[in-house]
Write a protein that binds this DNA or RNA. Structure first.
Length: 615
RNA sequence: GCCCCUGUAGCUCAACGGAUAGAGCAGCAGCCUUCUAAGCUGUUGGUCCGGGUUCGAUUCCUGGCAGGGGCGCCA
């Protein structure tokens, strides 16, 4: 809602309240919404709650609530229009409102068309890239996302957390939060050691050149190693012996790493760097710039200290004397009788750190070193119990920020043939999909595109291909699973990234031919319904940003920008701009096109999708 | 046994407790000597089942049914 409309709304609210006070009717809180099905814009509020409250209190006439709500709406309309029961200075303050109506229990207030249109367009063109940005909230939020297991290539599931996290970070930042992006790569663990062991034993020095080629080659080694180490049915005694020997070698390597053995440590350092090279490259492709890197290999050390603190505070119980681990009996500590958070093991009986140990240590760092007020964890839904436990322990520990820790749990990306599994080699790699996307765009570019300079074809194809992929992932709500289908993900028709990018390109195409914009917008002519719809959509952007941020849902933005692009395409088709005969109309529409282009670009940016000038 | 998530059109997905449940794909019928047809216009078609709360439930509560996930030393 724009500033002016906000002012009108509060004035009218005052009038309504005054009317109810004067007539001694208890008024339920007023909630304002947009008026649907109008083709004209304005705001509405209903009186159902007020009528229902009245009926419950036994006051008023005995008529059905909807009917009574309509009656009240009509009375309010009369009061607002005439100024009855309102103090004198309020009379005649319906500035900006063209008409008022009472329909089906609702009070509808319509804005003056030309004024509203001008204000929306002028505000967008004055703010440009900042149009829709929320006021600073003086709250710091950390978004943690992109936690790949290192030493093998990124798959499409990793792409979901990365896109979801990046989009969310952009949204909360734009909404007004001080935002920190954090990643937590799994650079140590049995999986990492498995690759190291197989590389060292069978393939040392055979690695191919090229960051992604090497990563994919390591994935093959991982698959091969897993097969060697997995117990099979009908194993011969020799096979069993061999498998057990291999497993012992692998575990010995893990022990050596923990002991700081120079050979194993150096092997790890080199291979970890390979993985990081690939990870950084993928983040670059997705235009993600991390502020903070937490590494699992480092979290291990921090974790053990906090366990002692939790024991000292009486939150954790140390069972190591009896050969057990260190645990927190969460339900018991909270006084719950039914099992809900259960018991969490926070340190192994041998004193080594667990995932839980690390997460507790990281949370403490987030609060104490980075001073975050909110902490969002973008991690798949299978870990929801884990995070509920972690957050409860943080609460017991005394961190007030625990209340603002949020596990953004997202559904899994699966394949039509079932769950992805890196160990079994059943994965769709992000790089393969991205490459395929670019290839497909290039294939249609020549027939569908305008004049794209040869030097830019590849770049624009990448923007469009990745846009299609990002949109297909972000237009599904967080906690829903995605069954990944390349043809669907890389579709360019209908509700897709390219559809939205195309609206941006078409707007740009008009503006390029038009030359300089006029400095004022004068919408003092009869607006086409498509024009009104487009302005309506543009005006909704600031609210859409706030909603997406407060619900932690990029989907809200994905929906919004599609609706906006859809309104633009319809406008483009139905309303002449450059061909307008009237100079004033042409200037106003050009400014509207510029405002639409800017708003589409701002919204796409929040989805980590590029807005090309041509395509 | 306990906990979490999901169930809406043939398919994939939307819908602050409110006015007429919306899109895309697929199907059908139209629109390019006019600002880019990656587009526009029209059309067919739907809330898993039972109770409850409410003036009003796709939405909240409860009980089923169906699918997925999780539950003390994996991450």
């Amino acid at each position: 809602m724009f500033e002016k409309e906000q002012q009108w709304r509060s004035r009218i609210e005052e009038k309504i309240k005054a009317y109810f006070a004067a007539n001694d009717i208890p008024l339920a809180p007023l909630k304002w919404t947009a008026i649907p099905f109008s083709g004209e814009w304005g705001m509405a509020t209903s009186f159902f709650q007020t009528a229902a409250d009245e009926a419950r209190a036994g006051k008023g006439k005995k008529i059905p609530v909807p009917q009574r709500a309509q009656e009240i709406a009509e009375q309010v309309k009369a009061a607002v229009l005439t100024g009855e029961a309102v103090s004198k200075e309020e009379i005649g303050s319906l500035e900006g409102i063209s008409r008022v109506e009472a329909v089906k229990g609702y009070l509808n207030l319509y804005f003056r068309t030309s004024e509203f249109a001008r204000r929306v367009v002028d505000e967008v063109l004055a703010s440009r890239a900042d149009f829709g940005r929320g006021a600073p909230k003086n709250e710091r939020v950390m978004v943690e996302y992109a936690q790949p297991n290192m030493l093998h290539s990124f798959h499409i599931g990793h792409a979901r957390t990365t896109l979801l996290g990046e989009s969310l970070a952009r949204i909360v930042e734009f909404a007004g939060f001080d935002t920190i992006r954090a990643t937590y790569p799994g650079d140590m663990g049995l999986g990492v050691i498995t690759v190291m062991w197989a590389y060292d034993k069978f393939h040392k020095g055979q690695e191919p050149d090229g960051i992604h080629e090497r990563g994919q080659w390591l994935l093959k080694i991982y698959i091969e190693a897993t097969a060697l180490l997995e117990k099979k049915e009908n194993e011969t005694p020799e096979e069993t012996a061999r498998r057990e020997t291999y497993d012992a070698e692998r575990r010995e390597m893990l022990r050596k790493w923990e002991a700081g053995d120079p050979y194993v440590y150096e092997l790890w350092r080199v291979m970890r760097e390979w993985a990081l090279d690939e990870f950084r490259d993928v983040l670059g492709i997705l235009d993600v710039k991390m502020d903070v890197w937490f590494f699992e290999s480092e979290a291990n050390k921090l974790g053990k200290e906090i366990v002692d603190e939790l024991i000292a505070k009486g939150i954790a119980e140390d069972e190591r004397a009896n050969g057990g681990p260190v645990i927190v009996k969460i339900d018991e500590k909270l006084g719950l009788t039914r099992e809900k958070y259960r018991t969490m093991v926070i340190l192994r009986s041998d004193g080594s750190a667990l995932y839980s140990t690390n997460d507790l240590a990281l949370a403490k760092q987030k609060f104490e070193k980075y001073h975050v007020d909110r902490s969002i964890y973008v991690v798949d839904f299978r870990q929801s119990l884990h995070f509920q436990q972690v957050f409860k322990i943080l609460e017991l520990w005394g961190f007030p920020q625990a209340a603002k820790c949020y596990h953004l749990s997202y559904g899994y990306v699966t394949l039509p043939e079932g769950a992805m599994s890196a160990r079994r080699g059943r994965v769709v790699l992000f790089k393969d999909v991205a490459d395929e996307a670019v290839k497909r765009v290039l294939a249609v570019e020549s027939e569908k595109s305008g004049n794209i300079p040869e030097a830019e074809r590849e770049k624009i194809a990448t923007q469009i291909g990745l846009g299609a992929l990002a949109y297909s992932i972000l237009s599904v709500d967080n906690n829903k699973d995605i069954v990944f289908d390349v043809n669907e993900a890389l579709s360019f028709d209908g509700r897709t990234g390219p559809y939205i990018q195309n609206a941006h390109v078409r707007a740009n195409s008009i503006l390029k031919k038009a030359g300089a914009l006029s400095t004022d917008s004068h919408f003092d002519y009869e607006l086409d319904k498509h024009e009104i719809e487009l302005i309506e959509q543009i005006s909704r952007f600031p609210n859409a940003v706030q909603q997406a941020a407060s619900e932690y849902r990029p989907l809200v933005m994905a929906q919004y920008v599609y609706d906006l692009a859809n309104a633009f395409h319809s406008f483009y088709h139905a309303v002449p701009v450059l061909q307008s005969e009237d100079e004033n109309v042409r200037n106003a529409r050009l400014r509207l096109v510029a405002a639409a282009k800017q708003t589409i670009a701002n919204a796409l940016r929040l989805l980590d999708i590029q807005a090309p000038e041509v395509m």
